[in-house]
């Protein structure tokens, strides 16, 4: 596990009698960009949510940066971590949601400084300075005092990315970040993500944007039925998928 940013070892997750993840194995190195694709219901989003313990895994192990997610090993047994420890670990992982989930009662600036001030106990002035830089980087420096519902979907998602980056995460998770956007707004969000990848951020992206996966990702992963069916270097992966289920899926969407 040394040196890996993420290691998933036979991760299973079931909701009641519904098995969503049935043994996911995946390794992600630092600075790597991995795109997860697959049909809906294949467990992509659930897997992502397990990584920051928004969902508890039912079986298997998840390691982020060498530490077990959500549990502690004590005498060969697994013990769930206390709430504040889970929170501290979550604060090191950024997450961007399909439906943005900005805080509607706060301005753009307040959205971005909230967690640094409350969770990391950063001094307010410093947090504001850093937030300005981040908001500038996603191209919204003229919208600091606007409320989320005064922004377009693409702008909201860019704010959401800035909000996640404000915690200086070592890993960024993107859960279908462009699926709720009008087609003409997808590009601006992908552009921000592309620059983030160029800056060396470790990213796991669940997406339906095959173009982005092909051009930006270091690796494409195809999930179906709760397992990783196939993974590979994106160009080869899209040009000549090996597994019949991957072939079938790609033939439908490309």
């Amino acid at each position: 596990m040394s040196g890996l940013m993420l290691r998933a070892d036979k991760v299973c997750k079931s909701f009641g009698r519904l098995d969503v993840l049935c043994g996911v194995d995946l390794e992600v190195a630092p600075r790597e960009v991995v795109c997860i694709i697959g049909p809906s219901g294949s467990g992509k989003s659930t897997f992502l949510r397990c990584i920051n313990h928004l969902e508890k895994v039912s079986a298997g192990e998840l390691w982020v940066d060498g530490e077990l997610v959500g549990y502690r090993q004590a005498g060969g047994k697994l013990q769930e971590l206390r709430d504040n420890e889970i929170c501290r670990k979550r604060s090191e992982i950024g997450m961007v949601f399909q439906r943005f989930n900005l805080f509607p009662h706060m301005t753009v600036l307040q959205n971005v400084i909230e967690a640094p001030v409350r969770v990391k106990r950063q001094e307010r002035g410093a947090a504001v300075d850093r937030a300005r830089t981040l908001i500038d980087r996603v191209g919204l420096s003229d919208k600091l005092d606007w409320y989320p519902n005064q922004l377009s979907g693409g702008q909201q998602q860019r704010v959401a990315i800035a909000r996640a980056l404000a915690m200086e995460p070592k890993l960024m998770l993107f859960d279908e970040p462009t699926s709720a956007l009008d087609p003409e707004l997808v590009g601006e969000v992908l552009e921000v993500m592309r620059r983030l990848a160029d800056d060396g951020m470790t990213m796991i992206v669940v997406t339906h944007e095959m173009g982005f996966a092909r051009e930006v990702a270091n690796r494409a992963v195809f999930m179906d039925g709760g397992v990783v069916v196939e993974e590979g270097e994106p160009r080869a992966f899209f040009a000549s998928p090996q597994h019949p289920r991957t072939q079938q899926f790609l033939s439908k969407i490309l």
Binding site: L54, D83, S91, M95, N101, F103, R118, M167
Partner: peptide
């Protein structure tokens, strides 16, 4: 989604 976003940022309950 609001609680999830807050939790994902590391906020306590």
């Amino acid at each position: 989604g609001q609680t999830e976003a807050a939790q994902a940022l590391g906020m306590t309950r």
